[in-house]
């Protein structure tokens, strides 16, 4: 078990290191930071002084190590737009994003998993067909189309709910539904196929044959085994809590991390983009790590393997 943990930790650390390297490479490829920050018309001496001050005159691999060190110390640079630390800008947007993504996450789980299980238990029934149709719609209708259709119906035509902005809980309803419905479809599809796979196994037939009531077979034998693939998808959803609402926040002008990211990209505010990139990588890696641990708990066979 310790070996399993250690391997997972090494892999998590490697992924983070890759993201940092990605940011460094992309940042350096995009041009000379001195020229970008000082503007191309700056006098040559000023640029040279800037290079010296920020260590840009050193060999690239030393710059790389310094860059790594700075990030490990939490120095993520300042926003070029208002000069505040990038990390503070991002952190103050997180509550607004979580206010959308957490209820949407709950909606996905409460809708997607039961729907998937019901569809699998009654394969080829009307329920199954409806769930699958909903699931396909869930990932073929892009969130901006779904969001705008909801606005058209509930805000413009019926006038029941606000079309955007963030005042009061009512303005959160449409974005949460938009986010939740799409994810619920994906989750229902995964749960259904995981359940179908498990229901075809010999141990399910054995349990039924020896007289265990069907409900107990489903509860004690099918569900725990079907949980393993489903947990992977849920893990990915946890990982995208911070940045999973980029498009939806834009549709509903919701002042969260996603909105900040879009504005930062449009203005090429590199420090903010980099900060969000690293934060997303951090959440994804942590979520994947947690999923791996859960695997170990759910299925003892996986502890030694891989």
């Amino acid at each position: 078990m310790l070996r399993f943990l250690a391997l997972r930790l090494v892999r998590a650390a490697l992924t983070i290191a890759l993201v940092v390297t990605f940011a460094f490479v992309v940042l350096r490829l995009s041009g000379d930071p001195a020229v970008i920050i000082m503007s191309p018309e700056a006098p040559a001496e000023a640029i040279a002084a800037f290079r010296k001050a920020w260590g840009l005159d050193q060999p690239i691999w030393i710059q790389y190590i310094n860059y790594f060190g700075a990030i490990l110390h939490g120095e993520l640079g300042q926003s070029m737009r208002d000069g505040r630390p990038a990390i503070a800008l991002v952190l103050e947007r997180i509550p607004a994003t979580l206010a959308l993504t957490l209820p949407a996450f709950a909606l996905k789980l409460c809708l997607g998993i039961p729907a998937g299980i019901q569809a699998a238990l009654h394969r080829n029934s009307l329920t199954d067909r409806l769930v699958m149709a909903g699931a396909v719609a869930g990932f073929t209708v892009p969130s901006f189309v779904l969001g705008l259709l909801l606005v058209l119906l509930f805000a413009v035509t019926l006038g029941w709910l606000p079309s955007g902005g963030q005042d009061g809980w009512r303005s959160g309803i449409l974005p949460v539904i938009t986010l939740g419905l799409g994810g619920a479809g994906i989750l229902a599809r995964f749960t259904r196929s995981a359940m179908l796979e498990v229901l075809g196994q010999h141990y399910i037939r054995t349990a039924s044959a020896k007289g265990v009531p069907w409900r107990a077979v489903v509860r004690n034998h099918a569900l725990p085994n079907a949980a393993i693939p489903t947990v992977t998808v849920i893990g990915f959803m946890v990982g995208s809590l911070i940045a999973g609402a980029v498009v939806v926040e834009s549709v509903f002008s919701w002042p969260g991390v996603g909105r900040l990211l879009i504005v930062a990209v449009a203005n090429r505010d590199l420090a903010v983009v980099q900060c969000i990139l690293l934060m997303v990588a951090g959440t994804m890696v942590t979520a994947n790590f947690a999923v791996d641990l859960l695997y170990g708990l759910l299925d003892p066979r996986l502890r030694g393997a891989r």
Binding site: T15, V280, M284
Partner: peptide, 17 residues
Amino acid sequence: FQASMPFLILALAVLAF
């Protein structure tokens, strides 16, 4: 790495840079 990062975020980062 590719599978564990949301592609939209990576794409936005490249477009920003």
